[in-house]
Design a protein around this nucleic acid. Sequence first.
DNA 1: GAGTTTGAAACT
DNA 2: CAGTTTCAAACTC
Length: 772
Amino acid sequence: MLEQPIYLADMDTPERNQIGTTAVPKFEDSPVFNYINNLSPIQPVKSIHTAQTFNSLSFSSLPSVFTSPHTSSYKESRFLRRRCYSDLSRPDFSSENGNKGVTGNVDELQVNSSAPDDKSESSTKLSSEPQALKSHSSRPDCDRPLLDSEDRAVSDPCVENNSGSGSSEAEGNRLVVSQTEEKEGTSYDWESLITEGADLFIFSSPNGSEAIRLVQRPLDLVTGFPSSTLAQMMENDNANLSRMRIADPIESSGGQHEIEFSSSRAGEGCELKDMDQAIDDGISFPTSSDSMSREITDDEVARYIADDCMPVSNLHRGMRRRCLDFEAAVSRRKNMEDGSNGCSVSTHPEEKTTSMDKQLVPYKSGGVATRYVLTGIGLHLNALATTSKDAKNLNHERFSSERQLNLPNSGGLCHSSSTGLDPLSTSIVTEQDMDPSGSGVQSEEDAAMASAYVLADDFNQNSPKKKRRRLEHAGETESSCKRCNCKKSKCLKLYCECFAAGVYCIEPCSCQDCFNKPIYEDTVLATRKQIESRNPLAFAPKVIRNSDSLPEPGDESNKTPASARHKRGCNCKKSNCLKRYCECYQGGVGCSISCRCEGCRNAFGRKDGSSLLGLETELEEEETETNQKSVMDKALQGPEIQNNEEQNPGSATPSTPLQLSRQLVPLPFSAMSNPLRSSFLNVGSSSGFYAGNQLEKSNILQPQPVKPVSEDEIRNILHGDCSHGAGMKTDSPNSKRISPPQSEFGLSPLPRTGRKLILQSIPSFPSLTPQH
DNA sequence: GAGTTTGAAACT
DNA sequence: CAGTTTCAAACTC
């Protein structure tokens, strides 16, 4: 994967041209289209007259699909940073409409979920003229200078789709859809799409389950690069279009969502250049009139992209951007070194600095992303960590965040998570919701991203404390969007949460003399490398899901549902592992024998092996006493366990966030191959708890008796879920903590094949060094 | 918001 | 490897 050529700067390959120039059959007429229609109950997208209600708020299940890291990665990957930058430059951007016409050359994601009335607006905007776009965004995040026109052109992550109310969105969507379809009809070359591995899905599922299933494939692109399709994509370097259209009845109005992925190539930054080409290729932009497509100017396109391309999670953009940076840098270097790829991005001198964002995009973007991910261990691992921590969150948060994006108040990506992440406010997560992501092939990167996204929400926060608070509420994840307050470390030490999490500091950070910025990429990488050399696992997730792991000798706590354990264990002396000073506690995991804590009373599991079960009462008491005030808030984020316990007093096993998720979400993930997967369900982070809370709220709170999960069940689930985490059992470099290697699959009754593959594919802890 | 506490990270 | 220092988050007031 690493070796795969990445982003070819030059978008204009013959193949690509072919796509654009070649057949432009009406897809409705195309055999493929017909075939597809025949295959499923899915309604032809064309219908479009259906009221589109891609109301983010109301929309629970579907969003997941869009928001799924995969998809998002696809689209977002490209734009993450740029948008951010562009934001400043382009205040006018109005993201309000959900029209997500995307059009870059590269990965396009077109999601037409827009605000109803916006449709006209958006369409007119795009097509006709850069009218004053309303910029919602003033995102803190966007402090970075515009690097290049491209960046500028690209939408700003900060910008939020304010799609505002669903009603308006619906219309907008409709409109967009119809428009796009029309265009598509004329512009798409289906054959090429298919042959090239483009995935076209048109489906309507009443419950969204189908959607998930279908979506899976596109998702596969993200994770399953191995797929021939992907391979072809890479080979051809052509614009690959993966289009998903979802007519989801779930939406009250049967909103249709269309997602188009056109990953012509990773060539980042190329999108604008090739905009025309993209259009030729059939990329549809929502325009007031069909004919407009051709006339769209780059600027318009860019704007359009900025506005809509990331319908899913604008919030996430920031995070992704940050998270990807390290890897991106590495990858970039790698590319430069390789030269084989001829990655334009890297080749351009000026891009070096500016390109960060560009490259970032690819990372995330769909399948391509994977390659990069490997380059940087830090992020990758962090991703795992986050995922593990946020495991549950990812899905939930994703949704929530996405939804939030649409919220009127949302200032765009940057808006605070507090509002957005509020579990209560977030939509209820259902299995279905989970499915998409879960079934999906979420890659670790995605997960990481997702987690990162979550934090992105918090970017708005201005004061550190506030931020912190928000994080708490939002379910701060270790690796996810961190905001640091470093004063002396220059954010180049592990003291810095951002740095430790593998993300660049951003505006919301209150750090001083920060070097953890893209402009100091070299420094950051060097430092990182140095730290890794000292401790290869320094950037590994602190909390590792050990679900698969055999209980460490004497460590009964492992039997708890939350088998995740802190990588090295804590060393608490005074906090009794009852406060967030304790990394174990903070991570939502019990202490293990590897901990050197004193007087451990970790609510998630004591070092001595006491299970939560026995401790419940005690813990509750303690918790209530000590943390009474903050418990509620915290509960949202991390210690959801409390809730669980309370909620499920009868449950045989102390319920941990993970457990909850399991119970609630039967791991639809078919493709466990993803390392992330494990992380998804990982309990590790407080953020995870947050998610868990959501789950709880959504499901648990309801008077449904919680069925105790048997250990076996848990194991099964864990295995499935956490496949990786187990694999990831990272032993501390210092050997302070060592997990039995055998545990990896041993316990798993139903080992998922995917896991092994993943494990193999992903070096345990690849070093950051661009050796590849 | 300022100050204190805490424990990880870094250093010796 | 242990002890100490530095650091920034977590916490308290």
